[in-house]
Structures are given as structure tokens and as C-alpha cells.
């Protein structure tokens, strides 16, 4: 999905704000969110990292921008706990209001009903041996697909339909686009693909820039180079 999380190349976010000697957590609640992320995993609410990432990218877009990193996790975690049937949105609302939250406070969480099946990993880690040969070799010219997925994907919008070149092969990995939705690991070959800055951002963009992305084989098509 081309959600608010898909930030590469967007304009309007202003200058960087760099904090000196930043603490690991700015507030206790951020650490609590971190601990609840582990708890969600233990309780079987998360399933896998791809599903967690997708729960975060599904939160309310305004909350995504306003709530900071751990606020985004919080929205994703609420979604996971509700979709797993462990809590209800109403119970969380009620508790938050009893703690002082206004009744019309924005709620980031966006649980689906019915939710996708919650499926864990078939083995540890995300690397998987594949019996199929990789379709692309080092140095191959490729083109990314233009198709936008309605669900989770790891092909950023800024790199869709663009020409690139394979610079590394990483073997088989769990495919996030299916795994996030409980549709199985369906491992795919993973590659690093280099894109010239000008092919992403046009002729007026900064010179001498190459952007690398780690892309799964289903995102890639062969590209014929001009002789």
C-alpha cells in the first residue's frame, strides 16, 4: 500500500531536527510500548515482523505523522491486540478516558474485521533455502514493476516502474507481501538493486547519487538495454 509510511521522496517535512545526547527513551511510556511489543509476540498477537510493520502502516495517517516512533508502534500494537481478540477497542478507549483522555481524542489504531490470519515463522529467521535458481544475475538490467499492492509491500512508491541494475544476490527470504497477510512465507530471491539518482528524481536532481534498495524477485522485470 502507498500509505503515509512510504515516505521516500516526499516533500514538505522541513529541516532535520537533531537532538544532542539523546536518551534511549524520552518518556517512560516509550519503554512501556517497547515492552508491550515483546508481550504481543509472546501472546501470539503479532505473528511475524511483516504483520507488525503492516499494522503500523495501517494506522491513522495523521497519527502516523504526529505520534512519533513509539506512538506509531502503540497504534500498531493496539491493532494487533484487538485483531487477536485479546482486547477490544472499546475497553482501551474506556481505560484511556478514565486516565484523562478526551472522548474525542484521535485513535491511531485501525483493526480490521475480520483480520488476516495470524501466522508465525515456519523456521527461525527470515532466510530460506530455495530450490529455484535466481532469475537475475549480477549486473543484469532490471525494471521494477509499476503495480501497486493494496496490502503490505517493500517496494517503495518512489522506486516503482524504474530502471535499475542488480548489484548483489542475497538468496531466498520470506516474502513480506504474503507473510504480512497470513498467506504464507512464499520465499523469494532477494537482490540489491542500484538506481541512478537521475532515473528516480529527474535530470535536475543532485549529481552522482546512487540509491540502493533490497528488492524481492516478484518486484523485478528484465530490462532490455538500448544497444
Amino acid at each position: 500500500m502507498q500509505g503515509i509510511h512510504d515516505l521516500g521522496g516526499r516533500d514538505g517535512f522541513g529541516l532535520l531536527e537533531v537532538e544532542k545526547d539523546e536518551p534511549a527513551f524520552h518518556h517512560r511510556w516509550e519503554a512501556a510500548v517497547f515492552a508491550m511489543m515483546f508481550a504481543a509476540g509472546r501472546a501470539g498477537a503479532t505473528g511475524n515482523s511483516d504483520r507488525f510493520r503492516h499494522a503500523i502502516e495501517r494506522i491513522d495517517p495523521a497519527a502516523y505523522l504526529e505520534d512519533s516512533y513509539y506512538g506509531r508502534w502503540l497504534g500498531g500494537l493496539e491493532t494487533l491486540f484487538v485483531e487477536a481478540g485479546l482486547l477490544t477497542q472499546e475497553a482501551i478507549d474506556e481505560k484511556a478516558q478514565r486516565l484523562g483522555a478526551p472522548a474525542d481524542a484521535r485513535v491511531a489504531s485501525r483493526p480490521q474485521s475480520p483480520p488476516d490470519p495470524i501466522v508465525g515463522y515456519e523456521a527461525s529467521g527470515c532466510r530460506r533455502d530455495l530450490s529455484t535458481e535466481p532469475r537475475f544475475a549480477l549486473g543484469d538490467a532490471v525494471q521494477t514493476t509499476l503495480a501497486s499492492s493494496a496490502g503490505h509491500t517493500r517496494l517503495p512508491a518512489y522506486a516503482r516502474g524504474r530502471p535499475g541494475r542488480i548489484t548483489a544476490q542475497h538468496g531466498g527470504w520470506v516474502f513480506p507481501d504474503t507473510h504480512a497477510h497470513g498467506a504464507g512465507e512464499q520465499p523469494a530471491h532477494l537482490y540489491t538493486v542500484a538506481f541512478e539518482g537521475q532515473d528516480l528524481w529527474g535530470p535536475g536532481s543532485e549529481p552522482g547519487v546512487v540509491v540502493h534498495l533490497d528488492l524481492f524477485e516478484p518486484y523485478l522485470l528484465p530490462r532490455k538495454e538500448a544497444p
Binding site: 518518556h27 511510556w29 516509550e30 512501556a32 510500548v33 508491550m36 504526529e66 505520534d67 512519533s68 513509539y70 506512538g71 502503540l74 500494537l77 493496539e78 491486540f81 482486547l87 475497553a91 482501551i92 481505560k95 484511556a96 478514565r98 486516565l99 484523562g100 483522555a101 481524542a105 484521535r106 485513535v107 491511531a108
Partner: peptide
């Protein structure tokens, strides 16, 4: 906005 998320986190933690 941080206090909003803080309250919500506190609620989830309590539950």
C-alpha cells in the same frame, strides 16, 4: 500529542 500517546500507552499497559 505526546501526552495523548502517553495516556493511550498507559491504558494499554494497565489492561
Amino acid at each position: 500529542t505526546l501526552s495523548g500517546a502517553a495516556l493511550r500507552a498507559e491504558a494499554l499497559e494497565a489492561l
